[in-house]
Lab assay of single mutants.
Amino acid sequence: MPVRRGHVAPQNTFLDTIIRKFEGQSRKFIIANARVENCAVIYCNDGFCELCGYSRAEVMQRPCTCDFLHGPRTQRRAAAQIAQALLGAEERKVEIAFYRKDGSCFLCLVDVVPVKNEDGAVIMFILNFEVVMEKDMVGSPAHDTNHRGPPTSWLAPGRAKTFRLKLPALLALTARESSVRSGGAGGAGAPGAVVVDVDLTPAAPSSESLALDEVTAMDNHVAGLGPAEERRALVGPGSPPRSAPGQLPSPRAHSLNPDASGSSCSLARTRSRESCASVRRASSADDIEAMRAGVLPPPPRHASTGAMHPLRSGLLNSTSDSDLVRYRTISKIPQITLNFVDLKGDPFLASPTSDREIIAPKIKERTHNVTEKVTQVLSLGADVLPEYKLQAPRIHRWTILHYSPFKAVWDWLILLLVIYTAVFTPYSAAFLLKETEEGPPATECGYACQPLAVVDLIVDIMFIVDILINFRTTYVNANEEVVSHPGRIAVHYFKGWFLIDMVAAIPFDLLI
């Protein structure tokens, strides 16, 4: 008679799926529990143990900040960024110097990925580790590398530091407007667009060049630039800015003055950032001319202004700041037409079709709590990747769950009947059967004279019903998954307890 339990259901295979997918890609990662103190490590794979030199037993239950890997060259700011990422709910990448158990130093890129439950609360953290440099290539500990984003994938490793954006290309926007319009339909740009040429040739750093990471940081200074100062900065030398009595002219307006920039070969870094931020506020060169004239017309309804409409929906549905990093990277690809469009465009503009998908598509409701890094690593669709929660398995109709209350009560009843059979069957065979043979035949009273025979008949009927119930009862397979398919249940029961239950259900007393 089957006594099969499996009270692990309803099970959740999400954690096993993450481990299996990460292991298949030869990654070095740990999984931490966000619900406990210090976000203790609950799993670390073999790749991480080989990377740091510690065994799994030495890593388990330690804080996922990996303070046991810190050393003299470990930056405090990087460690603080990892700790801050564990307090938030967004994906974050941090470069930090770690030390192995043998004392060797290596520069590592740590990717902190939160995993949320159905309520939107962070319950786990996945920390992925990628070695960037070994100890002989690690720089000085005073050099802070965590304020910069990861290198873009479309640049060669040897040319990542030679990417320079020439400031004269930004200063000569109005001069290039006529050349853009003359391109017409034969050019790649839309009317009114501004073409910015980027020099990728390796050259020595000069005062006129600005690194790509500095251009990325310009967006942080746009908020500090007032509207009046932006307007004066875009007017140009024809209309000098008016300053109040006793007030000095704005240095932001002076930063885009061609006369002032041409007199000296070098520009201050602050002026460069502010000038680029001011130019980015204009949607095209037409807006710059309109600002000089004193009238700013409404933005025209053409394809170039609607190019950012799908980007707005993608940004609203993005799951991490990696989408913004990807957008900034692609927006700086050289030799393309940049349409400086305000994100607050007309909502009635139709979304044009684009061959290049900048932001990841909208994630469906079932995966809105899973970050983009987890979705990318697992390579699963929205119909396959579940949320991290207890999910009731989908069972067929008329199927009994093996952990249901009805099955528990039924098993206790069958257990009592088995005990009765084990006690009274030998007793009936030894004593009652002998008395029946010696006594007179009682054929007239039937079952009324033999109450134990009636009980034995009921017990046999219950055993037959138990066999039928076992054909529709779920079970737990070797992978700790609840199986509810009727065919698989029948095959599993035939290979197991079916023969024993059938022999126990045969009414031998009635056959004798």
Rank of each mutant, 00 (worst) to 15 (best):
V110W: 01
C52D: 01
A97C: 11
L15H: 04
A244P: 11
A203Y: 05
A83E: 09
D321L: 05
T162S: 08
A97F: 15
D287T: 09
P63I: 01
P298C: 13
A303G: 07
M133T: 14
E372T: 10
R273Y: 12
G120P: 07
L69Y: 01
S209N: 14
A97K: 12
D119K: 13
A190E: 01
R356S: 11
R77Q: 15
A172W: 04
F68C: 01
H143K: 11
A185E: 12
E177F: 05
G262Q: 13
L385S: 09
L69T: 01
H147S: 15
S182H: 12
V374L: 12
V131Y: 06
P72Q: 05
P297G: 11
P251L: 09
L51A: 03
R292I: 12
S179E: 06
Q81S: 14
F98S: 01
R181T: 12
A303P: 07
P334L: 01
V3A: 11
V194T: 06
G226W: 05
S264P: 04
H147R: 07
R181G: 06
L155I: 14
C49L: 14
L107E: 09
G262L: 07
V194W: 01
P150L: 08
E274N: 04
E130M: 09
L86F: 01
L109P: 01
A360S: 04
A83G: 07
E90M: 09
N220V: 06
K166D: 08
G294F: 07
D119P: 06
G294N: 15
P63A: 13
F14L: 07
P202W: 01
F14P: 09
P251K: 13
D259L: 08
P202K: 07
L127F: 03
S331W: 05
M308D: 05
T270N: 14
I126H: 01
R56D: 01
G224C: 05
L267I: 02
T17W: 13
S209L: 14
R77K: 07
E357F: 13
P249D: 04
G103E: 14
N128P: 01
V195R: 06
L109A: 07
T17E: 08
V374R: 01
E95W: 01
L155S: 06
E23D: 09
S250F: 15
G53W: 01
S284E: 15
N33P: 01
E357D: 10
P114K: 05
P300S: 07
